[in-house]
Design a protein around this nucleic acid. Structure first.
Lengths: 93, 93
DNA sequence: AAAATGGTTCAAATGTTTTTGAACTATTTA
DNA sequence: TAAATAGTTCAAAAACATTTGAACCATTTT
């Protein structure tokens, strides 16, 4: 009764159901272009350890794109997932 | 940074981020017409206590409509919330 | 080369959600 | 009227998610 698709859907909904992660998503939505995890963390007052944890979850859910360049990790929203997934989910449930 | 709107959104995403509740939502999506909590619980093998808990959360998130008739409680999907909310959220984030 | 910076990882502590069983209310059936 | 049925509520237990701090790796700056 619980397949891989469901697991993905749940990962996405879980990712979206936390205030910190919602703030991150909002921040990324505003900025449009990619930003470093550090910038986001500072702006939203998240410790780097906690930030690391949340970015990982968002990444795993496919809600953000991440790219590591030397020391820094750059993240940006993956609008495709957020958008497409939701509509798709509602149609195929 | 966290308003009432956010709280509602989070309640909805939380509601959708649990396997049991997703099963319930799927069940309601299939049946189209209203069904009793007992029927759903039996079909999905959820204890009545646990069912009561999950139906309450879904209700509070506005994802289902519930109506009590004598002993039984009848529930049905509230497609408006599921549908409308998601699109709205993505546009106004 | 040393110190600083940006991130990750780990384990422990803390916090939140979910499940369970017992006790309960209200309604229906025998 | 007694027993059964449909749900709810409560508190405890179990499970899961999040935060914290210390230690770490790699890169950049001094």
């Amino acid at each position: 009764m619980m397949n891989t698709k469901d697991a993905n859907q749940i990962a996405i909904f879980k990712a979206l159901s936390d205030p910190v992660r919602l703030e991150i998503i909002k921040y990324l939505k505003h900025t449009e272009h990619e930003v470093s995890c550090g910038e986001v963390g500072k702006a939203l007052n998240i410790s780097k350890t906690s930030g690391s944890y949340h970015f990982k979850l968002l990444q795993e859910a496919g809600l953000i794109n991440a790219r590591k360049e030397a020391r820094e990790k750059y993240v940006s929203l993956n609008p495709a997932t957020f958008d497409k997934f939701i509509t798709k989910y509602y149609k195929n449930i």
